[in-house]
Design a protein around this nucleic acid. Structure first.
Lengths: 255, 255
DNA sequence: CGGGAGGTTGACTCACGTCAAAGACTGTGG
DNA sequence: CCACAGTCTTTGACGTGAGTCAACCTCCCG
């Protein structure tokens, strides 16, 4: 059995497994296996057929895409997160590439096992639908963020989101390289530097990966975070949004 | 019974109903009702709780969102399409507003009926997962389109997609106002005009809603459509992408 | 025949990408 | 422990893409 006992509990944390009936769990995991990858390993290239559902248990993974010599980062995942679920459900080709950013530990579940389990256990199938819905809504937020805000506003909101996730501290630590953060926020590294410079007026100062937020209120006045775009409440899990935390409701932002 | 026989067949065309067991269909539709709306009717404001799954049977609907006095169009739907499915599955608030663009006919299915049917009929639940996956992948395409291409490239690819959908003709008809097309493509109306002007060099000429494509090859050389971004094969249904046509595979675009 | 909305055009401004160079950081091998 | 190479980051100068504002034009509807 390629799955160790120490991993079992982490697997329990995956939202859709905790709700599944024991025999379903059993069947899905029987064909699954755990794999370790070094940093900078390409797990999947966009356009590749997808045979497995991936579950990140340790490390971090970048989802990206390219076109005509341009490249962009669509998400950076941290444990515990699933990825390319939609492609697995449809048995289709990947629309995004996946690359490890650090040494990572990944559970790989054969697509066919997952699909047959969904068809057999409707509670499990419903849990997958919830997961998919959470991911979908995460993407809706991402598009709104991209189309409605300029780069400085995106950075400001990113910082506020990180602040919430890291416990309302006044000094946050950027979880990845600035180069990747820039790509995630849809700008160049040079422009990210300048965006940080602009936020100096709002009390933001940078020192390596450490970012000090002097005046959160001023930053918020500029950022205007909205519960309809920013998912502050998502655990540091899948950046695409999570079913669990979706029910939260904040105040409306628009006038 | 508020659902007419003439509508029954159109409802059959919804992907996830055609696969559902008869009793499931029965149960889901029993609480549903058909509603007609005039043009420019707001069906849903972002932030609103969502009580129904909407199915557009006739007319067209714009999904949009706003922030800080800016607004953007996320999709324009044509029959037969569902919308806000993800919010219904999670029983969460809407992240997008929905407004009719023309007089429309919409089937409204109580969220609770849908969720309980999913939990009871696993084949139905799976079909919903397929639908959600298709929508998810449509959004991934939309983000890639937005982050990887400039406005002229987006327009060029939009035109080529329309050309395929309208039957490879050399004169296509824009399906909505240019103002809305601009917002959908992520630019201002002024800029859309200029983007059309730029494409004159590729043999594109505009006359009202009619667009003539003189040299498709030249336009394609500029647009470089990719099966990983542009879903040429989607019926004129849900712009967010469709499960059915997802399996198609084209040639890779990148070098 | 007006009035109004949608569409186009031009001038201007600003946001953002590009290119180049210099500084900071990191990990490696001597 | 230090030297060094390579990568990441920052800064400046510059060009281009795209939003804004205003004027004008056209079409449609009353």
């Amino acid at each position: 059995m390629p799955i160790r006992a120490s991993d079992a509990e982490r697997i329990d944390n995956i939202s859709f497994f905790s709700n599944a009936a024991a025999p379903t769990r059993e069947r899905v995991l029987s064909g699954a296996f755990l794999q370790r990858f070094p940093a900078n390993t390409t797990l999947l290239l966009e356009g590749d057929p997808v045979d497995f559902l991936y579950v990140l248990l340790e490390g971090s993974v970048e989802l990206g895409a390219g076109w005509k010599s341009r490249d962009t980062t669509l998400a950076v995942l941290r444990p515990v997160s699933t990825f390319i679920l939609a492609a697995v459900v449809l048995d289709a080709d990947a629309l995004m590439s996946a690359v490890t950013l650090e040494k990572s530990e990944i559970l790989m579940i054969p697509g066919e096992s997952l699909r047959s389990a969904m068809k057999q256990d409707s509670a499990f199938g419903f849990a997958i639908s919830e997961e998919l819905s959470g991911c979908y809504r995460g993407l809706v937020r991402a598009i709104k963020n991209q189309k409605l805000r300029d780069s400085t506003e995106r950075l400001a909101n990113y910082l506020l989101t990180q602040r919430v996730r890291q416990g309302e501290t006044d000094t946050i630590v950027l979880p990845h390289e600035k180069r990747i953060l820039a790509s995630l926020l849809g700008m160049t590294p040079e422009n990210l530097s300048r965006a940080f410079a602009k936020l100096h007026a709002q009390g933001v100062s940078v020192e390596g990966a450490r970012v000090h937020i002097e005046k959160p209120a001023a930053l918020e006045r500029l950022a205007r975070p909205s519960p309809l775009i920013d998912n502050h409440y998502a655990q540091s899990r899948n950046e695409f949004g999570k079913a669990f935390t979706e029910r939260q409701r904040g105040t409306l932002d628009r006038s």
